[in-house]
Design a protein around this nucleic acid. Structure first.
Ligand SMILES: [Mn+2]
Ligand SMILES: [Mn+2]
Ligand SMILES: [Zn+2]
Ligand SMILES: [Zn+2]
Lengths: 141, 141
DNA sequence: AGACAGTTTAGATTATATCTAATATAATAT
DNA sequence: ATATTATATTAGATATAATCTAAACTGTCT
């Protein structure tokens, strides 16, 4: 049932449902913790068929372009990926760099005067601070 | 006068006002276009005294930690820096990766229930889409 | 079968950022 | 002024992240 959903979403975006692509989508579906490309590459290669690093990066890029996957850039660290499921914002930990989901809520649109000639595709909030684990650690010192 | 302001803000953060640090601050003050570390390094080395790459990165990191400078991560590209002046949001161009300032407006706080044990230091909106230059380019094709 | 576009691959290459450990500098104490 | 000390700088090596290359493979269509 999820298998079919993945297949359909790939084909709906004009992407062939290859074993390598499917594996990336399946891994993201099962791991909501915003893995890096390297982690995804490692993980999908524990099971057959093997996928190359270039393919993992190529596929992640294609999936982001197709709007099925989202990339979250983190300063000084590898980018992290998640499925574009329910809309949500993000929290990034200053200390460990982990990315966590935050409940979605609507954000006021900027005045069209301040938008100028830009074309806005999406907008997304980034909260920063200490994640629960790091907050606790820093409190107990 | 700006010179004094830079000096004071460095010392107020417990950072010595060295020639290299001053040069980074001065460059950011004069170039509001969110330069990369490499661009800052290049630029401050057109004038004496020469600063090394390591120092540029070290200083940018210290300045960010001190809250005087902000870093904006962009997926697949070098991080970009700006002075922490007036609060503002950011717009990142899908095509060219340029970062532009967007007028500040308050963002509703997430429900404390959804915050959990996190400690939020800041929150900041990222708009994405096409910058004016790229929007025009893509329209005329 | 043959043709073709899309996809995958290993490894090289580029881009970005950090580390190392020797040296220099600024602030403070004597 | 000189000594002491914590901070800061440096060149170059190293680490990490991402992309490129060109050849091989796969699925679809005729
Ligand atoms: Mn997410
Ligand atoms: Mn800015
Ligand atoms: Zn954390
Ligand atoms: Zn642009």
């Amino acid at each position: 049932m999820d298998a079919e959903a993945i297949k359909r979403s790939l084909e709906g975006s004009g992407l062939r449902c290859t074993a390598q692509r499917y594996a990336v989508m399946e891994f993201l579906m099962d791991h909501k913790g915003h893995p890096t490309a390297a982690e995804i590459f490692e993980a999908v290669n524990h099971v057959d068929p093997r996928s190359s690093r270039a393919t993992t990066y190529n596929n992640l890029r294609d999936l982001v372009k197709a709007g099925l996957v989202r990339e979250v850039a983190v300063e000084g660290r590898a980018g992290r990926f998640d499925l574009q499921g329910m809309r949500h914002h993000h929290f990034i930990c200053d200390r460990c760099g982990n990315v966590e989901d935050m409940e979605w809520f609507d954000v006021p649109r900027p005045a069209s005067r301040s938008l100028g000639k830009r074309i806005v595709r999406e907008c997304h909030l980034i909260f920063r601070g200490l994640c629960p684990k790091c907050a606790q650690r820093s409190a107990s010192r």
